[in-house]
């Protein structure tokens, strides 16, 4: 469906996309995942023919986007990061214009626009000026625009950014629905979104392809490691001793607990899926260091992501006292906000 070969895009000395190669198969929802500035938008802009590449090849349904742009572009509906809307038009006028631009036969235009307005739930605002619409509606008009002509491939660049939770759910449902009939590629820096909607995840960092697999496989691949987080009351040295002496522990970090004075928080990653809780309990009991809290967790897609992208690793180095380079420490409930904060830095 889409074949991308050795795609490279340079802006002066800066390499935005670095030798990217992958294929997109028909009928799946693909998630482009990567921190801000990873090259997601650039890649999408190249696939859709908005900008050229420095080198490499992109084929859409067999049509080369650089050599037969019109044929290739016909197969794609694109919603850029900022919906390309004309503020002085109403959604209906706008969709009519886009339908004409996409060369949809005159007889079908009207019905198609009505149907799409219905699906994207913008029917009730169709005669208001776009500049007076809320962000959520504008986004939906943008999606409607991409859907017009029912191209086989729909590409959405960060479709849920800046929407409220309800609108995010609406858009996600819509994407899932679109995904039943079309091949969808969407980009996001929010992991939960990608793991919730996508059949296939492509992780990009610094313009390079890092991983491309289904969310389940990605987690499985990197799993083999259960992690345990615990809060222990006692001397740091004693705790370190206990942890260091366990051969099943691959790596651990230790820091002063914020919630429990005098206690230490430890995060450890185990080798294999061994459950160390019982062993740790008796070990700490022996040296009379009571465990105040203990919890195991498998590796989430989030951890995989952070492990895979450089930024996750580098970030960790400055914020925590650390024994290893790789692990990233997160509290499960604040995952999403954390990631976003980190990426914005």
């Amino acid at each position: 469906m889409i074949e991308i070969k050795n795609l490279t895009k340079k802006y002066g000395d800066h390499v935005a996309v670095d030798n990217l190669t992958f294929t997109v198969k028909k009928g799946q929802i693909y998630g482009f995942l990567g921190p801000n500035g990873a090259g997601k938008s650039t890649t999408m802009n190249i696939i859709t023919g908005y900008i050229g590449a420095t080198s490499g090849q992109v084929k859409i349904n067999g049509y080369d986007i650089f050599e037969e742009p019109e044929q290739a572009k016909k197969c794609i509906g694109y919603l850029p990061e900022q919906p390309p809307l004309y503020m002085d038009m109403t959604p209906y006028e706008y969709l009519k214009f886009v339908a004409e631009l996409k060369k949809i036969p005159k007889g079908q235009r009207r019905d198609m626009i009505e149907e799409i307005m219905d699906r994207t739930k913008i029917y009730e605002v169709k005669d208001r000026l776009i500049k007076n619409l809320s962000k959520g509606y504008r986004q939906r008009v943008g999606v409607a625009q991409a859907l017009l002509g029912y191209p086989e491939i729909i590409i959405l660049d960060e479709p849920t950014v800046g929407l409220d939770p309800k609108q995010i759910i609406d858009i996600r449902d819509l994407i899932r629905e679109i995904g039943e009939k079309h091949t969808v590629i969407l980009s996001s820096h929010i992991l939960s979104e990608v793991s919730a909607i996508c059949d296939h995840v492509v992780i990009i960092s610094n313009g390079k392809l890092i991983a491309s697999d289904s969310p389940a496989n990605l987690t499985k691949e990197l799993q083999g490691s259960t992690s345990v987080s615990l809060t222990v009351l006692g001397q740091k040295k004693a705790i370190q001793q206990v942890l260091s002496s366990r051969s099943q522990i691959r790596q651990y970090t230790i820091s002063e607990s914020k919630e429990e004075p005098g206690a230490y928080d430890a995060e450890l990653t185990c080798i294999g899926s061994a459950d160390l809780r019982e062993e740790l309990f008796t070990a700490f009991a022996k040296i009379k260091c009571p465990i105040l809290k203990m919890q195991t967790s498998g590796m989430s897609l989030e951890d995989v992501f952070l492990e895979l992208t450089d930024e996750g690793a580098a970030e960790k180095g400055n914020t925590e006292e650390t024994n290893t380079k790789e692990t990233a420490i997160k509290e499960t409930d604040t995952k999403e906000t954390n990631t976003e904060e980190k990426e914005e830095e």
Partner: peptide, 9 residues
């Protein structure tokens, strides 16, 4: 909006 124009066929 040029993104719309230049990605249209």
């Amino acid at each position: 909006t040029d993104q719309l124009l230049f990605t249209a066929p």
